[in-house]
Every structure is written in structure tokens, then in C-alpha cells.
Write a protein that binds this DNA or RNA. Structure first.
Lengths: 340, 340
DNA sequence: AGCCTATTGGAAAACGTTTGCCGAACGCAA
DNA sequence: TTGCGTTCGGCAAACGTTTTCCAATAGGCT
């Protein structure tokens, strides 16, 4: 680590002919006032010398840094990057910096990153991304976060419920259920599901909601029409391939994320099926490009940017007991699911 | 800012019955050794008490924080999120944290963010995103970065050349030129361009390279066949609309980014033109979904993840004079540009 | 004039670390 | 035994801030 030598407050004070205390008060403000003339002089001096406050020093004495730490599974995934974008917008408004890390969906890494975050003494830690059902690290992670919270930090989980912390919950069950209704209403009868890892609660919820929605229309989702894969574009491609190999008669496929739907769509075409023509295809999330593909993708809208904002709101408002914000979802029918 | 009270090194030292100095050496290691037995005892105590080193305190005394600061235009844009992903992977390997901010392409914000970054004393600052041609803040930003560098920090610019700093340069001109060749070879004759803001060097380069490539095949790109818009999906949609309104006879359209191409494609379809059938469409960047759309998008591959890695490599290797890494690009022909 | 209160500058103590130095303990050769 | 080098623990200074006092000055009131 190269030594970085910088202008210090002491140098500014000296140059302005005041004490360090006064310089501090003049520049970074506090309850105490400093006379206008001195204040101006100090500020000008600081400007001239190119003084920049040392955030770490401030953090040491204040006990917390003006920072919010964000942990996401994968920043290259448009789902997470859209949420992150909302978080960063909120953070900027609140004058906070953002430190970010990706867990790559490995929960041991998640635990380590949270430890590292704690070392930074951020004002809040936001964890985005579905939790695994049988996560060996779950307890360790929760302990870390609890300790952090008890030390005065705020914890916000996005799409991680149930949990003892503040929560931003996406209505996955309801959205998938409504989607099922809509698809049946369009004339779908034989449904398949391209499912991200079942162990991720998000997927489990979306599957359950979809099955429930179908059931409410008198259709039973067969287990053999569900293919599981990684919760990524490639996973969708692979799972769809598997589904095709099973030689079922499907007229509509629901993928538990838009990203998986894109992969599934490519697999369909490679098998000679045009989504939106011979077979229907629906996703979930309504990520940015889902309306630009051909055929435009039927999906369930999740207001991703808003989610980030809400997470920051929770992080900043102080309240005693944990709160939950429910994010409503809504079905968007597009050309990928034809009316029959 | 809530006071966060935490276990300190002093408490660990006390509990372990050693001095603070010894505790420090036992836990965070240094040149000096501490006997195995004491070392073990201290570590165990730290573990039991849940001690976490205070990174800010360490930063204050060491003079720099184990952090790399990243500034991107817009994290929700897949171009930037893919690069960020590479950067974060590199940072993790190097044991560094990442602090991230978005400038929203406003250069005044960019300047402010860099100031804030400097306050954090990061080990490196990475700035990703094309520079504006006539940027009123350009000088202020360069001064900030120069001062930072002189204080011992490392600066890496991605796609920002020319600049006095370390540079990761994408071969935009060459890529666009090669694309033009390939499109002419496929039988294209009447070309249009959906251009992101011309003031962004990236767009200017891609346009220039494309025009040059056409010229080398004996085709002159007419100014009236170029429509300019925001460097986003919506910009592409709007610019394509404008182009269509001009009533030209185009057989192929080059959009200066995949994102713009997606928007342009939607505009084409709304006008009754099928990309890949009546009209060719090509993009630039090869973002993740470009092969999943229908028709799959012809584009110029830019290895975005690698770019991030290279940026981190530059940030970490220490060398005197500024270096430049050239990232090669390569044409990928897909169905959106039919062979005629 | 005398007193009380507000205002404002400065000295110094914190905050949680790392590290330069000192000195104690030990091993070993002479 | 002395002398000397090596190992390793601890004291205390430093890092760049904020904040608690304390003191000095100014102003208002009687």
C-alpha cells in the first residue's frame, strides 16, 4: 500500500492561523459556530491547499462511516444491477457512499463479505438475493448481522424473507399466481416450468404460486413438466433442453426469471419451435430488454429500481422493530404467449 | 449516525493478558513474530469475543485503505455492469473492497464523486465510461486525479483515452471498421447509423471506424443516414424512428451499441420491418443477451469481463509511466444481418 | 462600575490501530 | 563467569480527526 501523503487539517489550521479545533469546526461544521470571517478564511485556505477530509479519521472518532454496504449475488445479472442502481441513487441522495460486493451465490463467501463489511463500520448493510433453503452458513450469517445490528447498524434484506431484519419482499407467489390465471385465460392448457434452483426461496415461491394459480383454474401441474437448472440464462437454456427431451406436449412454458426465459427461448428455437407461435413462453422480473426481444416476452413486472429505493428508505429511517415492505407485482402480457 | 460500539483490540489484549502491541501483531501479522503459544491464545480470545479489526483505524495509521473505488456511468447498463463484475472479481482476488458510484453521465457529479473517493484514500480509482469531447469539467477531473496519483494512488481509465493515466482501451475504430467490411461482404449497400451522442468519444470512434470501413469498400456514408440519440436503449429507439421518418432506402443499420440496437430493432418492427429480413441490424459490445434475441444480433464482441480484470491488473501492478492495454474486438455475424 | 450570560477560540483528550524503540530473557561461545 | 547476539513482549508515539472542557472577550443589565 503506497503511503499517500495528503494535506491535513493541521496544515490548513496552521496556514489559516487558527487552531485545529477551529479549522475542524469551520470546515466540517458542528453544533458550535465559528465567526463568519474566520470561517471564510479557513475555507479559502483549505481550498487553496487542496485539503480533503480524511474519511477514515472521521470514521474512527465518530464510530461509523458514511457508507452503506451492499451485497448482491451477481452484479452482471440485470436483476441485481437494476436493484443496485436504485440503491445507489438512494445512497447518493442521502450523501452516503456505497461499498459493494458479490457473493456469486456462495454462502461461505457471503458470510466472509459480511464480516469484511462489518470491519468497515457502515451505516447499513443491504443484502440482496434469495436465500437458500438449507444453507449451512445461514446461522453464521444471521449471527453476524444480528451482532452488527446490536452494535447500532441497520440491516435490510431484499427478497430474503422471512427474517428478523427489515425486509423488502417481492410478491413472488401472487405474481406467479396471477400469471398462471392470465395464461390459462389465454387458452394455455399444457404447462411446463423452467425452474431455477428449487433451493432458492424465490424459485420455490414462483413455482408454488404458479402451481396454485393453475390449480385454481382446474389444472394440475405435473412434476415431470418441471425442469430445474441454474438461476441464469444458461440454466434456462439447459432446463428447456431437458424439458424438450422429455417429449411432452406442452403449449406454454413458464421460466422463473426473464433471464432463464431468454435461454429457454433460444433452446426452443434450436429445436424448431417459435416462441409465441407453436409454444408460449413467459418469464418473471420484466428486466429492461424483455420488451425488445422478438417476440416480446410475457412476464411479471417487478419494479426493480423502486426496490432499491425502498431498501435505502428502510436503511435510513430509524425505527425499533423490523419492518417489511411488500412490493407488488403485475402481469404483463406480450407476444411470446399467443392467445389461442 | 448511530454509535456502534464494538469489541476493540484493547479488550482482546486485556482478556488474553497481553499488551495491545502483541495482540495487534498476533492478529493482523506484521514483520515481527510473536511466539506460537501466545499467538494462538490471542487469536482464540479474539474469536471468542467476536473481535473485528476496525478498518478505518487501520487506514488512518497506514495511510491508505484496502479499497478500490470504481466510477461508472450507469450500473444498470449491462455494458457497465459486465465490466464492474470483472473489476469486482479482480478486487476480491487481491483482497480489496470495492466502493462504487455512478455518475449518470453528468460530469459535475463525476468530479464530485472523485473528490469523495479521494477522501476515502483508496488504493486505486477506476473510471469507466467514455469521455465527452467538450467537457467543462474535464480539467477539474484531471486535476483531481493527478493530485490523487501524486499522493500515491493509482488511476485507471477504461475507454477514456487519450489520457495521462493508465488506460484500458477498446479497439472501437478497428471493430467498427471490420464490421463495415463484413456487412459489405454480406451484400449490404445502403447503410444507416443509429448513433449515440457524438460528443462521446466511443460513439465518435465507432462512427469514424464504420465510415472508414465503408469507404475502403467504395461506399460513402451520407451524413443524412446518421441519426443521433441518447446512448441508451431509448435513444436507439428514438434515433431509429427519426431515420425511418427520413424516408431513405436503407438495407442495413449499424447502431453504436447493442442496447441502442435493441431499441432500434423495436422501432423497425413497429414500422413493419423485420430486422434480419427486410433490413439488416448490427450492434456493438456483444452484451449477454444479444445472442438470445430473435433474430440473434450481429455485433462486435467486446470482452467486457476481461476489461475489468485488466483494469484491476493495471491498478495493482506498480510501474512508473502510464501504460495502455488495448482490448481487441471481433466481429460476430448473426442472423440480424442477412446474407443477400 | 459590577455582574451575569453568550459567544467563540484553543488545549488536550479521545477514537482504534500500527510500529519504533527499549529492555528482559535466553542461548551460546570464549 | 563474561560477553554478545537473537528473540520477543510492552510502552508510548503516531496517524487525522472530533469534541469536551476551559478561558477570554464582548455585551447587556442594574
Amino acid at each position: 500500500m503506497p503511503p499517500q501523503h495528503q494535506v491535513t487539517l493541521a496544515q490548513v489550521a496552521e496556514a489559516a492561523g487558527v487552531s485545529i479545533a477551529t479549522a475542524s469546526r469551520a470546515i466540517n461544521g458542528s453544533t458550535r459556530k465559528v465567526s463568519e470571517v474566520i470561517r471564510a478564511r479557513v475555507r479559502r485556505t483549505a481550498e487553496e491547499l487542496g485539503y480533503l477530509p480524511n474519511l477514515s479519521a472521521q470514521t474512527v472518532v465518530k464510530g461509523a462511516s458514511p457508507t452503506v454496504a451492499v451485497l448482491v449475488s451477481d452484479i452482471a445479472d440485470p436483476y441485481f444491477s437494476a436493484i443496485s442502481s436504485g440503491i445507489m441513487a438512494g445512497a447518493r441522495q442521502a450523501g452516503l457512499m456505497v461499498t459493494m460486493a458479490t457473493s456469486e451465490r456462495r454462502s461461505a463467501d457471503e458470510r466472509d463479505m459480511i464480516r469484511t463489511f462489518r470491519s468497515q463500520r457502515p451505516r447499513a448493510i443491504v443484502v440482496v438475493g434469495s436465500r437458500w433453503d438449507e444453507d449451512p452458513e445461514a446461522q453464521a450469517i444471521e449471527e453476524q448481522l444480528t451482532a452488527y445490528q446490536q452494535a447500532g447498524g441497520r440491516v435490510v434484506m431484499v427478497s430474503q424473507g422471512p427474517s428478523p431484519f427489515d425486509l423488502v419482499e417481492i410478491q413472488n407467489v401472487e405474481g406467479a399466481r396471477a400469471l398462471a390465471h392470465a395464461l390459462v385465460d389465454q387458452g394455455g392448457q399444457h404447462f411446463g416450468v423452467v425452474l431455477g434452483y428449487r433451493g432458492l426461496r424465490t424459485n420455490a415461491d414462483r413455482l408454488a404460486g404458479f402451481a396454485q394459480g393453475l390449480a385454481e383454474r382446474g389444472i394440475t401441474l405435473q412434476e415431470e413438466t418441471v425442469a430445474e437448472g441454474a438461476f441464469t440464462r444458461d440454466g434456462g437454456y439447459a432446463a428447456m433442453g431437458e424439458l424438450l427431451g422429455r417429449d411432452l406436449e406442452l403449449d406454454t412454458v413458464f421460466a422463473t426469471s426473464d433471464l432463464m426465459a431468454f435461454g429457454a427461448g433460444t433452446a426452443m428455437r434450436e429445436a424448431g419451435l417459435q416462441p409465441g407461435v407453436q409454444i408460449g413462453l413467459a418469464g418473471f422480473d420484466n428486466i429492461a430488454l424483455s420488451e425488445d426481444v422478438t417476440p416480446a416476452l410475457t412476464t411479471v413486472d417487478v419494479p426493480l429500481g423502486q426496490i432499491g429505493r425502498h431498501a435505502m428508505d428502510l436503511a435510513l429511517s430509524d425505527h425499533e422493530e423490523a419492518r417489511t415492505i411488500e412490493i407488488p407485482t403485475s402481469v404483463i402480457l406480450r407476444a411470446s404467449t399467443p392467445v389461442r
